[in-house]
């Protein structure tokens, strides 16, 4: 009985913060989604008009949702596989391990502004490093950021370049694997690959689960690269939902409409996250 109250005490800091700093902005934005609000004049109640307009008058709403969906479907699984694989490799005790770790982690700490600028240059179709190297190999590289097909994938590549951030989390997770389990597996005569599959990966699942959930939430709010580098173009091929929402809120000055967009996204992401949580019991292994 006493332990129950203790639990509340432990989560109290977040709960208080939630009520004081988050709840009010949240409720306000729900309200705003039912209003016409240009940020400056007082909000006017319009009922469901924003939601109705989104589904009937807005050519870009569906388009941006689709772009974002596609991004989540590709970027999240690819990111997890790459992150786990990299962490597994970096967990092997080899010469120069710390140098490698630092090297692969580095891209995720370069400030976004610099990353964007660097990529605009090296992905340049004519004078960029990537196409220059491809040319030496006899391949004519695409017009990366300027091509309606490749721009989207350029942003995915860029995201992959920053995979070091999740790699660090996996590495920390790998350090949690108790030695006894390896010893047991070794006694069974398992080779390194077997050990990875049978011991390491299952024990890594709580961290993979974390990255999956954060990946889904993050992918649906993807914004930076599209905002700085492609501005939604060419031909709307990188018009991500969050970018379009930002334009609606701050550029086209329609905060009520953007709030409606945000809550649709919220419902979608929470639904998806809920699904992911529901599968948790099947594949995520927590310590005994």
């Amino acid at each position: 009985m006493k332990r129950r109250r203790v639990g509340w005490l432990f989560v109290a800091p977040w709960l208080v913060g939630f009520v004081v700093f988050t709840l009010y902005p949240f409720l306000t934005s729900v309200y705003l989604s039912f209003t016409r609000y240009d940020v400056v004049s007082p909000a006017k109640w319009v009922g469901l008009a924003n939601y109705r307009a989104l589904f009937t008058d807005d050519d870009l709403f569906g388009k941006s949702l689709l772009v974002t969906f596609k991004y989540a479907c590709i970027a999240v699984p690819v990111g997890i596989v790459a992150g786990v694989a990299l962490a597994l490799l970096l967990n092997v005790d080899i010469k120069g391990q710390s140098v490698f770790r630092t090297l692969f982690f580095l891209p995720s700490i370069v400030p976004g502004v610099a990353t964007a600028t660097v990529f605009v240059w090296i992905l340049n179709p004519e004078i960029g490093l990537v196409n220059g190297l491809l040319k030496n190999a006899g391949v004519i590289g695409p017009n990366w950021l300027g091509d309606s097909f490749w721009a989207f994938y350029s942003l995915i590549f860029m995201g992959l370049w920053g995979v070091g951030g999740s790699m660090v989390i996996y590495l920390a997770g790998l350090k949690d694997v108790p030695v006894q389990l390896y010893e047991a597996a070794l006694l069974d005569g398992a080779g390194p690959w077997e050990r990875t599959r049978r011991v390491t990966l299952p024990l890594l699942t709580p961290v993979i689960f974390f990255n999956l959930v954060m990946g889904v939430i993050g992918a649906f709010q993807y914004f930076d690269g599209a905002f700085i580098m492609t501005r939604g173009g060419p031909e709307d091929s990188t018009l991500f939902y969050a970018l379009y929402m930002f334009y609606r809120a701050w550029r086209y000055m329609d905060m009520g409409y953007a709030s409606a967009m945000a809550w649709i996204l919220f419902a979608l992401v929470v639904g998806l996250t809920g699904l992911v949580f529901a599968t948790q019991r099947r594949w995520v292994h927590y310590g005994a």
Binding site: F26, S29, M214, Q221, M245, L265, F266, V269
Partner: peptide, 9 residues
């Protein structure tokens, strides 16, 4: 709470 874009809050 992480799923609501900060732009509207």
């Amino acid at each position: 709470t992480m799923a609501l874009p900060g732009q509207v809050t």
